[in-house]
Design a protein around this nucleic acid. Sequence first.
RNA 1: GAUUGUGUAGCUCAGCUGGAUAGAGCGUCCGCCUCCUAAGCGGAAGGCCAGCGGUUCGAAUCCGCUCACGAUCACCA
Length: 577
Amino acid sequence: MDYKSVIAENIAKVTELDVEQVYKLIEIPPQKDLGDFAFPCFILAKSLHKAPAMISADLAGDASLTYGGMFNVKNAGPYLNFYVDRSRYAADTVSRINEAGDKFGASKEGEGQNIIIEFSSPNIAKPFHVGHAFTTILGNSLSRIYDRLGYNVIRMNHLGDYGTQFGKLITAYRLWGDEKALDEDPITELLRIYVKFHEEAKKDPSLDDKARENFKKLEDGCPEEVALWQKFRDMSLVVFNKLYDRMGVSFDNYNGESFYSDRIPAVVDMLKQKGLLEESEGAQVVKLDEYNLPPCIILKSDGTTIYASRDIAAVLYRKETYNFNKNIYVVGTPQALHFRQVFSVLKKAGYDFADDCVHVGFGLVKFKDMAFSTREGNIVLLEDLLDAAVDKTREVIVENAKLRGQDMSEEEINEIAEKVGLGAVIYTYVKSGREKDIIFSWEEMLNFNGNSAPYLMYTYARIRSILRKADAAGIKASREADVIGTLTGDDAYEVISELSGFEGEVKKAAAINEPFVISRKLFETASAFNSFYNNCRILGEDVDVKDSEARLALCEAVGNVLKSGLNLLGIETVERM
RNA sequence: GAUUGUGUAGCUCAGCUGGAUAGAGCGUCCGCCUCCUAAGCGGAAGGCCAGCGGUUCGAAUCCGCUCACGAUCACCA
């Protein structure tokens, strides 16, 4: 168990506070002489009718808090400060991590719980641009985090595979479609005819009627139209899957909007039966005044369905099929109101699992002063961004390899460039709070210094290099508590203190659905390690072997944490770079 | 207009269920490779935490108002 948890449990026992609550209150003091952990006693002032300073003084005298000599406890004003025994702290932390390996941070807290994560959900026949990357990367990371915590994760790709645009596509394909072009590059060809349709429809409005007609045929299951739709869908999926494979993203399920559409009548019946459906301005709606929300439209005035009804049908299906404990939607922040409405309708209909549905929103990806817009042509395809990042990385590697006299095969360089380049892109999406907009800038995306994936991967690669050198010299990372316990210097202590907090941050990331909690922790850990690395030689003739063994153990622990954490973000590591 | 979000260093962001001297990265400036990968390390400069008021022993954090910017608000998803 990590030290913070031990402290929290002991304080909770003594004060009768809730362990979770205490855990959150524990902080790291701003100055070293104030200890390694601190508990502010203000919260107890009211219930105990005593001044915080008195309380901390009383608590400091409670021997049970030292946990058998694990801590030295002192009161300083209203704070209760915990001083760890650095030697024991180092041995405990480093050993615990190295036993867990690169899965460090795993737990069983989610055992037996099903959690659905809906993410990515691109529209069929539309290009996959850097905006779609947000939900894909976020959702992938959250999936990995919950998975690591023991939850049974069901990854769902709610494809945009339904709607009148398919009537347009079918119409356009019959008029101007080029089968060969479709085979070679489906999305580009589908986009071409889609754009052409809109151009031509301006001149000839009868095309719109034709499109509506074809969509109606599709809905009614006419074989020819269904076959074309199926073809477009399959071909688009092939393209998307190539991108997903490249990014290490996978799904359990590709049920899109079309899948749920024939379940909507049952939803309408159910709402009618419960007397929730009302007519308003020709449409069928559920009023949500008591939730202080605008009405939710279930059926349009022409009697056709709308996305809200599809989403409700989807939740019911998911509950039935997966009996989820949590149902997460990784969808942009602009749809916040829509999800509140959907969840409220469910709640109003008496489905308490509405409370287990969560909308995890995220910001926009935009250029300096304009939003992305397919119509204006100012989009950046994710694939182009990935390629640019990989190219830039390759240049850096080639240059460095020359400088360092490393011999790398072309194949190895390409492999490393791919991983580092992708890592750099992925990281920019998970380095800040998810609700922040990302201002897209090539300069920032391709800056590999500071708080970036290449920085973390570089730190990892350097550690691996040292471990290889040590191995060649026959020196092994220590497993002995008394050897590791010699890591008591300030630089090593800073590293150990960062390492020790990793598990807690993984849990926190899941609790608030924020992968950036992990990326921030990794950066701080790597930063502390790089200082240590700079100030303290690990291998060498003038280094005592025992010291080398202890420091190697620390290196190994940092490597494990970096690999574990990067993996949770969806980023791979490389052995050299 | 209603709902809702944001405003912290030149730029991008942490910190926000009130607590010890407000922190990073980028950029700028100055240092560090005869030594484990310089995609690194160290240092400097840079802040009325949008403004005003309130609650409190204590406010970047909570409350109210003002200003600025954004999102959403019925038949697209």
